[in-house]
Amino acid sequence: MKVLVLGGAGYIGSHICKALALLNHQSVVVDNLSTGHREAVRWSRFIEADILEPDTLIKILQEEGPFDLIMHFCAKSLVGESVEKPALYYRNNVAGTLNLLDAMVATQHNKLVFSSTAAVFGMPEKELIDEQHSRLPINPYGQSKKMVEDVLGDYHHAYGIKSVALRYFNACGADPDGEIGERHEPETHLIPNILKSAIAGKTSGLKVFGDNYPTPDGTCIRDYIHVNDLASAHILAGEYLQQNDGAFAFNLGNGNGFSVFQVIEAAKNVVQQDIAYSIEPPRAGDPSTLVADSTRARQVLGWQPAYTDIESIIATAWTWHQNEKF
């Protein structure tokens, strides 16, 4: 396949570009580098551009295409920031995607894999979240992604755009070869913050938000999915769209929940040192348990996550963080 990867300089997009290259697929990356890293684009042609510029998108699709598939990762994704700056999130995540879809219609491209999120569901109503779970987002970030999912259905009905929305739970880990990995400014994710704390030799600084949740050890339980498993799901979704017509959605997680304390303990085993932390008040809106039911992705796409053990996931991230290349 020839694939256009929007946001391919970011954490997930760059790993997908490497996975595409290993399967002999050709990719072109478009990124405005607002949060991505030019150094992470190592397997693709790179074009610096912004999805908020519709004429530029049309030009890229016309001059670089035709593409067999478009993958869309350009998004603002910090929950707290979305509450403070909702206009930024609706403009980038919703209006930007509308620009892309209109450019696809104008240039006769009709296959899209969209990066969605578990945040579309809001507060969990049951232990395992499947695709039938209510979508009731509780912040502008989740709402912006839900809006795009709804738009995708309408664009399929009206314009024939075929799509797959992949709803990630907690993306984590890094390329096992250590060539690319996770780097955000600011960093809000648990595993990189643990590992950076270990590298810095900090005796404090890592914060655990709440230890009195109704879970076995009192800390929140989350579903951690390795970024390479996300990559394989995106490629399978792209292949699925070559043969199937519709606007589809799949939940992606490894199906196992790990508490914050379990992740810290696993990290201690990987880095072979103690991890200091402080207990802080719970954050508003944090559910006690958030775990995916990915049965549908397994059955329909034939997807099978390779990383299900939390220590092996952390070990790949540790390899990266010890020698970050950008």
Rank of each mutant, 00 (worst) to 15 (best):
305 P>T: 00
246 G>D: 07
281 P>L: 11
37 H>K: 12
75 A>F: 04
191 I>E: 11
318 W>Y: 09
70 I>Q: 06
82 S>E: 03
156 H>G: 00
324 E>Y: 07
286 D>N: 08
276 A>W: 08
324 E>P: 15
54 P>K: 03
169 F>T: 02
203 T>W: 14
114 F>G: 05
310 I>V: 08
320 W>A: 01
315 A>H: 09
216 P>M: 01
276 A>G: 03
266 A>G: 08
150 D>P: 03
303 W>K: 04
149 E>L: 00
19 A>C: 02
170 N>H: 14
65 G>C: 04
309 D>N: 01
84 E>I: 10
71 M>Y: 05
261 F>H: 14
315 A>C: 04
230 L>I: 12
100 L>H: 11
120 V>E: 03
286 D>Q: 12
266 A>C: 01
266 A>Q: 11
275 I>C: 12
130 D>I: 03
19 A>N: 05
232 S>P: 06
119 A>W: 04
118 A>D: 11
73 F>G: 02
131 E>Q: 03
257 G>K: 07
201 G>N: 08
115 S>A: 10
125 E>I: 09
237 A>R: 07
154 D>E: 15
194 I>P: 10
82 S>F: 12
289 T>F: 07
260 V>T: 14
275 I>D: 05
229 D>K: 01
53 E>V: 01
163 S>H: 01
44 S>R: 01
119 A>P: 06
148 V>H: 07
285 G>A: 05
39 E>P: 02
254 N>S: 02
60 I>D: 02
274 D>G: 09
161 I>W: 06
78 L>P: 08
81 E>C: 15
17 C>H: 05
71 M>N: 08
50 D>C: 06
197 S>K: 11
186 P>N: 06
296 R>A: 15
129 I>S: 01
17 C>F: 12
262 Q>I: 09
107 T>S: 12
164 V>I: 09
200 A>D: 12
165 A>P: 01
68 D>N: 10
205 G>Q: 05
231 A>W: 04
280 E>W: 14
295 T>K: 15
326 F>W: 14
135 R>T: 13
290 L>A: 10
209 F>G: 13
299 Q>Y: 14
182 E>A: 14
215 T>N: 04
124 P>A: 02
285 G>Q: 07
140 P>Y: 15
225 I>A: 07
252 L>S: 05
306 A>T: 13
129 I>E: 00
76 K>R: 14
325 K>I: 10
167 R>E: 00
117 T>M: 10
307 Y>A: 00
115 S>P: 02
44 S>M: 09
72 H>A: 05
161 I>G: 05
252 L>G: 08
94 V>R: 07
269 N>L: 09
322 Q>A: 08
271 V>I: 03
194 I>L: 09
137 P>M: 04
